[in-house]
Every structure is written in C-alpha cells, then in structure tokens.
Design a protein around this nucleic acid. Structure first.
Lengths: 335, 335
DNA sequence: TTGTAGGCGTTATCAA
DNA sequence: TTGATAACGCCTACAA
C-alpha cells in the first residue's frame, strides 16, 4: 500500500519555489501576498492536491471551526429537520458540524460534551438531554460556547432558545372551545422533557383559567406508538374527551390512527386533535393536523449567529424565546 | 472575559509532578505507566479538567478519528435513520461523525470531500451524490477511505454498499401478479438516483420476462408531494394501473393518499401499492405499506467495520450487496 | 512583500 | 517505567 501521506505546505512551497510562510499566507484571507506569488502557490497546490490542515490550523489559532451537535432520536422528523437546518447554517458560516448521537448513552450529554472538548469544538449545541452543571461550567471555562435548544434550564452561561409554550397552550385551548369541545385532554409522553412539560402545564393552566378540568395522560416515549396507547387510554374513559392536545405531532399521528381505526371516531366531527412541531407528516393528507410550527430555520439562524458573534457578548446568559405559529388544518372543527 | 485557555498536558504534568510523557502515556491505551503515576496524573487531570487534544493527537498520529458523512436530504425518514445508525456505530468504534449537508451545494459532494480532506478525516461515507472521479482519487491518494452507499458506481477504490434491487423488483412483481393485478406501473422520482433507476429497470425487466408491459412515470423529487402528482398522472390514464410499485416509501405515501382521497380508490381492493425503504411511516396504520426493508443497522455495521479494519484490505474495490427483505403489509391483496 | 525562527499540544523514539 | 527530545503542519511575529 502506497499510503501516500497528505500534502503539506512545505511540499507546496518547494514546488512553487517559495517559502512555507508564503503558502500559509496564500491560504490566509487578508494576508499580504503578491499576485505573482499567489499564482505560483495556487498552481503548485492544485497540482499536488494540497489542502490546508484544519487540525494544525485549529491548534495554532485556538479555533477549530468545529461545532458539536448533541442529540438523541436523530431519526425523528422534527429532530432531523433541526439537525439539517443547523448543519446548513453552520456551513454557511464556514463551520462544520460534528454530530454526537446520545441515543444509547444513558442520559448523558456529559460524555458528548467531553468529546466536544477533546476535539476543541468552538461550541456545542445541545438538542437533547441536560448536561450536568459542572460539565457546562467546564465547557464555558474552556472558552466553549453552549446553546441549549428547547431545554428550559436555569444554567448560567449558555444561550437558551425556547418557545412560548404557554401562549401556544392558551391559543389551542381557545380553538378547542370555539370548536365546541367540552372534555379536553392532554396526551403526553412519559419522557418528561422540559418543553413537553411546559406545554402540559400551560394547557392545564389555560383550562383552569376557563374553569375546565383537563385530563392528562402520559405514556412511553415521544413516538407514534405511544400516541396509539394514549388513545387507548383516553378514549376508553367514561368521560371520553372530545378535544385532545398532543404534546408532539408524532404522538398526534398515532393518536389519530387509533382513534379512527380502533374507535371509529371521525375527526374532527367527533374528536378534535392538535399537535406540536409541524413535522412534515402533519401536512400529509391522512392527518392534516392542526399544529404549531417550530421554525427550525429560525432556531438554526439564532444559534449560529450567536456562535459567530464576537466574544464581546454580555456575560449574562441570553434567552431567545421564539414564537410558534398555529397552523390551521382540518383536525379541529371550525377554523 | 477570562477566556481561560484549554488545559494542556504540560500543566497536568506540573501539577502531578511528572513529565509530559507520563501524562501522554496515561491517556494512551496500552502504554506502560505505573499504577502510582497513573493515579497522580488522573487526579491532576480531573482537578484541572484536562482533556486530550484530539486535534494535536490527530496531527501526530496521522489519524484524526473523524469520519465525514456526506449527505443531502438529511431530514428525510430513510436518510435520517441511516445517519443515526452510522453515527452510533462510529461512536461504538470510538470515532466521531462530521456531518456535511449537501442540500444546497449544487450537486457537489466534491466540496464536501475537500472539507473532509481539510479536517484530515480518516474516511468519508457518501450517502448522496456522486463525487467527481478526480476527487475520489485525491481522497484515496491521501490515504482516506471511502464508502459509497446505494450509489452504484464504477469507481475503483471505495467500498460500495448496495442492495439487490433487481431481485426485489422480481419479487414484488410476482406479488402483484398473485394479487391479480393486470396493469402494472412504476412510480419514480425524476432525480435519477442510481438505486432508484436500478429498481425501475429491474421492475421493467421482470415485467418483460412475464410478457407484461410496465408503465413508467417519473416526476419531481423523491418526496411525498411527488407521489401525489404521480398518482394524478397514473390514475387518470385510460389504462389505469391496478398495481403500482413506488420507488420509495415516501412516494408511496403520497401516492396512496391521492389514490384514496382524490380518486376514491380502496387499497388494496381496487389498487395495490408497494414501496421501498421501510421507513417508519410505512408501518403507520394509515398506510400499512408493503415494502422492502433497507436494514440501516446492517449498512452502518458493514461500513464502519470496513473502516476499522486494518489497511491490509485488498486493493480491489470491494462491493457489498445486501438483501432487502420484503415486509408484507396490507397494501397488496393476498399475502 | 518575503523568508526565518519559534511555538501550538501531542505522541514516538531513545536513552537512562 | 520514566524523562528529554524531535517531530507533526501550521501560523505569527520579526527581521530582511
């Protein structure tokens, strides 16, 4: 095996008949190189297939260009949409995403964050799981920036991007009431994710404000199958609800399928359903689900912009609260 | 801003009262360190929050531990499942995934591969797009390993992982015939992806072998919406097909929704439908789609194992052909 | 504008 | 087993 090594700036310099520094400068935006030198260097580089070694560059500049994405359930519609949007935005800012899958590691973003430190990632974006406070401090102490998405937390330091779950809950409750629903329920997973709990609390509170008692059911993971089980549980009750707010679209899809096929309920005539996330499937004709749109592009934009901003950002931990727009579809009467 | 730099091995050594080398050895599996030294080093490291700098390590070892994942449409069910499986497997082998999103870059995996070279990725796994031959050669020359998934290509050097699309096509044709279908069609996207074309060719050939002319329609991207359009086109024909093989599940879902709602066709009574991929949604009750399972775990397994194998692998470009199992559901009669 | 020298944090080599 | 020393490929003064 030839095992030809990577081409180094040294070799390019030799080939071009200039010094190593000339090569370095050629590939450093804004450095002073004469047109002639640059031409010679570029020619030699092209010929040899030279690419700046970002590892070595990161070592020197103390800035790797790497951003670590920490997430579980990457194959989920909403999560994958978010990952896709963020990776794109990062690339637009000439950064690169390192994806750490925390599906199997027992609940620790911690291990992932240590990975991020090891690779000297400039920043980490956490989409799932809550890291230990000490690890967060460690990251910050090391000059790493942190973004927490959809994890309502009191940590100091990281940027937090959240949604106005309370307001959404109030809005959807109003919609259910306008549709003439009398018995409302909230269908949640048992995962106890901060944002899902916020939606639950918000919906309950909104109900209370109207003098309505909301039934709450929690089960399993935040997935289609759990939605079906939740339907089994809620729709066999004596006081069967006629308006159900599901914590996510995925739950809602499962819920709707079970409601229609196992309970022969017509949606929205006999049962109104709403979800959250506005995943692609919510727009599919079989569901046509009324839901809240989580604008992944906005999230990505906010996160990456903050990461690219100069360090002079205020020491206080900023919080961005985004608005989730209600997307009206046919799973709720009226409209 | 304190901007405390990262902790270096030097500092740990000083703190522990040993040499840099001792620290290095402590963090190098299989190196010879006395228990006492190791203890002291670990204590100091823990105290200072030291993490080996993988950038520097990669520089020395000429092995970064980084594997570049090059993909478009990451938010798609099948693609995201694949990404998830691969990232996990990589982590199991203590490697890390760098995700390059090629959605917007005009058809070049090329740019992505250059990124991979810049970061001295040990390997690249290409899930979408076909890179230019010269770039592939460049990667290989630089000692980078390449894996092409589902892209039937004649490139020499990379590992190619494919599916037996022909056999699948034959099997599903038989199933359609057994179900009593007379007029068969293949619904494809216009993306001309190698694997999708292979399925199309295979289905046509299988039909020909049985003396049946298969109608082919191609439209748009490989997405739900295209499936709907394909239904519009195919189901308005005078010789309306009664058995349709969709190139992917995503197309099939759109197709089914349109068939049911716009054409009031009952599936499978009046129309049989099959897909490919076995995405999660294919198992949802609204679709319950008969399809072929692309085992993402197997793909990930094969790819990562090959990457982790010693360099002594044969120079010839190996090809792995996996078997896509038929998953029987209710979208085809009989069974 | 250019080249030279020194250092970034590691690991590999070698002598002790 | 340990410590000194030389790379790895790059960038950034500094001097020319």
């Amino acid at each position: 095996m030839a095992e030809k090594e990577f081409v180094s700036a040294q070799e390019v310099a030799r080939r071009a008949g200039v010094s190593r520094s000339a090569v370095s400068r050629t590939f450093t935006p804004g450095a002073s190189v004469s047109a002639e030198t640059r031409r010679k260097v570029m020619a030699a580089a092209e010929e040899l297939g030279y690419h700046v070694n970002h590892l070595a560059r990161g070592l020197m500049r103390n800035e790797s260009g790497i951003v670590c994405l920490i997430a579980s359930e990457v194959a989920t519609p909403y999560r994958s949409a978010l990952v896709s949007a963020i990776t794109q935005k990062l690339q637009d800012h000439s950064k690169i995403a390192m994806l750490v899958n925390t599906d199997r590691s027992d609940g620790s973003a911690d291990k992932a964050l240590r990975q991020a430190i090891s690779y000297r990632a400039d920043a980490s974006i956490i989409l799932s799981g809550l890291p230990d406070k000490s690890i967060v401090q460690l990251c910050l102490r090391n000059g790493q920036r942190l973004v927490l998405i959809n994890r309502d937390d009191d940590q100091e330091g990281p940027l937090r991007i959240n949604f106005d779950n309370d307001e959404a809950a109030r809005r959807i409750l109003t919609a259910f009431l306008r549709a003439g629903c009398r018995r409302l329920a909230f269908a949640n997973s048992a995962s106890m994710t901060p944002s899902l709990l916020a939606r639950e609390r918000g919906f309950l509170a909104a109900g209370q404000a109207e003098g309505i008692e909301v039934i709450v059911e929690r089960y399993g993971q935040t997935a289609y199958a759990s939605g079906r089980t939740l339907a089994q549980r809620l729709l066999t009750r004596k006081d069967r609800p006629d308006g159900v707010f599901c914590a996510t679209d995925l739950l809602a899809c499962g819920f709707m399928d079970a409601a229609r096929n196992q309970f022969s309920l017509s949606i929205p005539d006999q049962l109104c359903v709403a979800g959250f996330d506005n995943i692609e499937q919510a727009g599919w004709e079989s569901y046509d689900l009324t839901t809240f749109d989580q604008p992944v592009d906005q999230i990505a934009q906010q996160a990456v912009e903050w990461l690219s901003a100069p360090l002079s950002a205020p020491a206080a931990s900023p919080t961005v609260t985004l608005h989730a727009e209600l997307v009206w579809r046919s799973s709720i009467r009226g409209g």
